[in-house]
Design a protein around this nucleic acid. Structure first.
Lengths: 251, 251
DNA sequence: ATAAGTGTTCTGGTCCCGAGAACGGTGATG
DNA sequence: CATCACCGTTCTCGGGACCAGAACACTTAT
């Protein structure tokens, strides 16, 4: 869904913010050369953003401000699936001692809404707001498996099947095979695809009408998850958490 | 610090986002009349924002997307005080069973970076990213008490001393008296100022050079916090948490 | 059928965004 | 200590793009 009449000025502002986010704090001249803009244009945009709290000045460098967290935090807080799943993800982390996550789909990408760490949890570099290709995680596969086939094709069309690691799913056919297996089992698995030695297990959250609203997962080092766990106690616990969320959402 | 040459188009985009955040999902016509803009202008801005993930369309309504959470989450994750304080705030919540918070100052306002809930914690309507006037919370007072007097005056000048409740601090003199007491004690207290029946206790986090980096707090219902607790065991625990953070930040 | 509402598209004229040059300050260098 | 090189900031003014308003397509209510 491309804008018919994009506001170019706004697009420059957004590009500036994203560049600033990726590079971390930096100065006017550097941003100007990176984005092929004049220094005065960059300066005008930055001071405008600063005036409204979206950007801050640290000495001579500019950096992204916390106003984005306010808007994003407000947006997250107003999502029903977050409100209801949040305590369940926390208790899932506490019970298993591992890392638990909540992911939703937005514009064909997966967005982590939260993570909760149990006492022994590994510390991945995920964070609330992080985007990821859906086909590269157990969470994403749990969601894809419950979308209409046409929607999945749209997503492949739009974002491709980027190979994050050699084990990543690389073709449409392979993906649909995996999704069929996920539907049969009721949960999705990532056995070292995203990160060597890391096992993840994810279950979808569906509304009463069958629409998928998100997915819940547990991530743990392979050394602590036996093959039996992976198809026995662990899916039971994750599915139960997803089920509690479904019941609370559907009253 | 006002922009000398503000980019008006960007300001319109930002106003649109903030209006959309406050009102929740709504349509083009309503936004146009609220912001006194033409429908086509609003439409162009919204589709541009949508193209980049900052806004989504739900049927005929538009709403704020999670891209803001990505940028804000990234910004938070890159803050040293957050990285180091996060586990301490969690264990503070776990130990006390109450609600623990982390606040930093940005552009004269307090911004909650996170909250952690213990087993018995009250559920306030704070969230990561929420902004608050510094003089209305224990967290804010802990920070103000460790800023230079001139800086505090600047903040009063800029944001005023809004009275959130009848108990709120309302004058400069009263504020400076309270801040002096906070400096002597080493921690700040909010005894029902923000919310009737809620007691909060906050300690500042300072760098080795004496600069205040943020504040940590515990919030609990008055029924569970005796007067002795408020000046005995509780401040000890909160101060200790703040101290651990200070030590880790200063190596 | 009609009407009143919506989101979307189109066009033209006015306003404002932004390249480039000049300014003021700071730190390195010989 | 003068010189230089670099920074962020300010200024001007011409060309480009933002946007009011009108027209369109569609849904819903009467």
């Amino acid at each position: 869904m491309d804008a018919k009449h994009p506001v170019r000025t706004t697009e420059k502002t957004l590009a500036l913010v994203e560049e600033l986010m990726e590079k971390g704090p930096c100065g006017v001249t550097e941003l100007a050369s990176d984005l092929q803009m004049g220094k005065s244009a960059v300066h005008n945009h930055l001071t405008t953003l600063q005036k409204h709290g979206y950007v801050l000045k640290d000495g001579d460098d500019y950096r992204v401000g916390l106003k984005f967290l306010e808007v994003g935090g407000h947006s997250r807080k107003s999502m029903e699936v977050y409100q209801i799943a949040e305590p369940e993800v926390k208790s899932l982390a506490a019970d298993t001692g591992e890392l638990a996550n909540l992911l939703v789909e937005e514009q064909g990408m997966g967005v982590y809404l939260m993570r909760a760490k149990g006492d022994d949890a590994v510390d991945l570099d995920t964070y609330a707001g992080l985007r990821t290709h859906l086909h590269t995680t157990a969470l994403g596969k749990a969601i894809l498996a419950n979308l209409p086939e046409s929607r999945v094709d749209e997503i492949i069309e739009r974002h491709g099947l980027e190979q994050k690691t050699p084990k990543s799913i690389g073709t449409r056919q392979e993906l649909f095979q995996v999704l069929e297996a996920v539907r049969e089992r009721g949960y999705a698995i990532d056995d070292g695809e995203r990160l060597e030695g890391l096992r993840c297990l994810a279950a979808p959250i569906k509304s009463s009408s069958g629409e998928v609203l998100g997915a819940i997962s547990v991530s743990a080092p392979a050394s602590r998850v036996s093959d039996e766990d992976l198809h026995g106690a662990l899916p039971e616990r994750v599915l139960s958490a997803a089920n509690v969320v479904e019941l609370n959402i559907n009253y």
